[in-house]
Amino acid sequence: MLNLWRFINKYNAFFFLIIYLTISFILLIRNNDFQRASTFNTSNQIVGSIYQEVNSVNKYLDLNLVNDSLAQENIRLRNQLKSSFLDDSIVTKLVTDTVHRVKYEYILAEVINKSITSRNNYITINRGSREGIKKGMGVIGPSGVVGIVWNVSENFASIQSILHEDTRITSSIEGTPYFGPLIWEGKDPSTVTLTDIPNQLDLKPKARVITSGLGVIFPKGILIGTVLKSGVKGGGSFLDISVKLATNFYALQYVYVIKNNFQTEQEVLEQANKESLNE
């Protein structure tokens, strides 16, 4: 027994290494589990409120960039107003009042914490389940798509940003019928890759990449970025297109969470399809 104790004592550093490494790995693996609500999460109250305090100071530093992006968004929206088009139509048509059937609602939220430089990046916002945010909702910024809601607590929510290896946003190139998933390869936080686009497509540089409207998360036509360059990888029949993201994650201060009022209906229907196939 004494000899065993001496042995442990002599190589104590090694045993400490084993003990603490085991604890770390248990924490790492438990926390990776998607379904488990984590206790150590920035959506957790204490860390969330610390970040909110720091952010209230920090946000003045980016004020110029944030103002710019909000002003640009205003211009874009103003250009879409009916009053900015010349009204030359003489056709009268029946207008159906659709106000009671709004499909997408937007919830404004402020970014209180973000990571950009990791392999998998998350953003924390100051809205949570109390404001009706649920897991899986889409998130956009003033200039383009940002990510998908990942975990929600009462007052905070964390977003899995486009800059994450598991995020796949179905997108297409404006004016073409083709669509494919968007992948971040973990090299540069301003470019992502659009895959699965057939290579017969004649691609113009600077073409706009937009959300495809397939699926239940994003409405059709929200800007993701512009085409940088494209090429066929290894003689395949699909293009790999580099896309420059429209969202500048460094200056991201305000985001909109998209609530789809018909999400459950669509999901239940699609689930029923799968089940009847399996039978």
Binding site: Y20, L21, I23, S24, F25, I26, L27, L28, I29, R30, N31, S38, F40, N41, T42, V47, Y51, S115, S118, Y122, S158
Partner: peptide, 12 residues
């Protein structure tokens, strides 16, 4: 880790 949402990574 707690501030970065990566529990266990920096610790290990």
């Amino acid at each position: 880790d707690i501030f970065n949402d990566t529990v266990g990574l920096h610790a290990a």
